[in-house]
């Protein structure tokens, strides 16, 4: 479902005299349908950078990021921006650590808007059910999440990420702000997504969570900084 070939990424800081920070080199990652691969490595090794590159949020300098989208392989690293928009809408889901939304939109609409291939009514019903499952009580559904706690915002984000049932799912610390009971729910949701054939790549700070969801580990090793 998802494969990278020779992926490379460096940051060039033009405001720091063109300082070059190589982060990723020769990344060859392969994730099959129904499989969860956890990215592991020390802090600063480039796990989040890799995940963001897979989503097209970061620019890949070399290599390919192949995603199976509507039966064909699309190279996220080379695709036209509007193609990436389509791949994200239908194939490639992403749960970021932080919620970034239009300030006034209610939590329910934020989640319902991410549903795929269902009517508006069905989307709202699915969104409500998913929020309730993640222990966001009904009285909060009509509120914009700006005033929610960090853990509540993360759960809104999770509901938004899982509602679409995307065939490829990227998870950046999905349980970071959650207590054990809430994290268990997320573990169950990941297991269900795998059963439904999703290919998942995730960063899981919590080793217990990681061991329960991951089929394989992919090691991300820090590169030496170039002068």
């Amino acid at each position: 479902m998802l494969r990278t070939e020779g992926l490379e990424k460096q940051f060039v800081l033009h405001l720091r005299g063109g300082l070059r920070l190589p982060v990723l080199a020769h990344v060859d990652l392969h994730v099959a349908a129904g499989e969860c691969v956890a990215l592991v490595g020390p802090s600063g090794a480039g796990k989040s950078t890799l995940l963001r590159a897979l989503y097209g949020n970061y620019h890949a300098d070399a290599g390919r990021i192949l995603v199976r989208h509507e039966g064909a392989l699309v190279d996220i690293a080379a695709a036209a921006p509007r193609t990436v928009v389509r791949v994200r809408a239908d194939t490639l889901g992403y749960v970021s650590q932080f919620l970034r939304v239009v300030p006034r939109v209610p939590a329910l609409d934020i989640v319902a808007d991410a549903a795929r291939g269902v009517s508006r009514e069905q989307a709202r019903e699915m969104a409500a059910a998913l929020l309730l499952r993640l222990h966001i009580p009904a009285r909060m559904h009509a509120l914009p999440p700006a005033t929610f706690s960090g853990g509540e915002q993360q759960r809104v984000n999770l509901a938004r990420g899982f509602i679409g049932g995307h065939p490829v799912l990227l998870l950046d610390e999905p349980t970071a702000s959650l207590d054990a009971a809430r994290a268990d729910i997320v573990v169950d949701m990941i297991a269900e997504a795998k059963q439904n054939g999703a290919a998942i790549v995730g960063i899981f700070h919590d080793v217990a969570v990681r061991d329960r969801v991951a089929d394989r580990l992919h090691h991300v090793t820090p590169l030496q900084d170039a002068a």
Partner: peptide, 13 residues
């Protein structure tokens, strides 16, 4: 380019 890519990983000085 893509809005979030240009804003999160800008290439041009």
């Amino acid at each position: 380019g893509l809005t979030d890519q240009v804003l999160d990983d800008p290439q041009h000085p």
